[in-house]
Simulated assay, not measured.
Amino acid sequence: MADPVSKSEIWRPHVTVACVVADGDRYLMVEEEVAGQLAYNQPAGHLDDGESLAAAAVRETLEETGWTVELQHLLGVHQWRSTEHGDAVIRFSFAARALSHDPDRPLDTGIRRALWLSRAEIAELGVRLRSPMVLLSIDDWLAGRRLPLESLSYLPDEGVACE
């Protein structure tokens, strides 16, 4: 019988979410400080334990931009190895519609500001983009990729142990 693998030995990628929020030809972006440098990204962040992917995307957008959004579609799932920390990242990218903005809401630590940029302006940022998934997600949106939100299931923890 093979030895079971301990939990600490199991490879675990970073699971992240991001929102493409379009307003005409402009997209909601964040300017953030990463390792002492300015970087640009969609509103994005890590999935918290016990949180659905959809809830994480809405939460991260609010925390990083002050915008309350409504998710419309899943744009895609992207896999990438971060050049920032070297770990694998699995990113769930959503399309969202802006509902309301609270300009007085404090933004997450490290976020300098939220701004609206065109795809051309975002592309011009080049290496200042947090990852290649930024343009990939916008291009998925522009190409008409739309998966129903029902493609994702969330089964809340009911206290049942899994083996």
Rank of each mutant, 00 (worst) to 15 (best):
L115G: 06
R91K: 14
L142A: 15
G126A: 11
R128H: 12
E124D: 14
V89T: 10
A88M: 12
R59I: 04
V77S: 05
Q79K: 14
I138Q: 02
A98M: 03
A143T: 13
L149S: 00
R128L: 13
V134K: 03
L149M: 08
W116M: 09
F92K: 08
H101T: 02
L129V: 03
H78D: 11
S137T: 05
F94E: 03
E84I: 15
V127Q: 12
E150S: 15
H101F: 10
H78E: 14
E60C: 01
R119F: 06
R145L: 10
S118I: 09
P106S: 09
A123M: 01
I90Y: 13
E63Q: 05
A88D: 13
L136V: 11
L71Y: 07
L115S: 06
G110F: 10
E64T: 06
R130Y: 08
D102G: 01
L62T: 04
R130Q: 12
E124W: 04
G76C: 05
E121V: 11
E70Y: 09
A96Y: 02
L107D: 11
H78Y: 12
L117D: 02
I138W: 01
V127H: 09
P103F: 02
R113S: 13
R130I: 09
R105M: 15
H85W: 10
H73R: 14
T109V: 14
P103R: 01
V89Q: 04
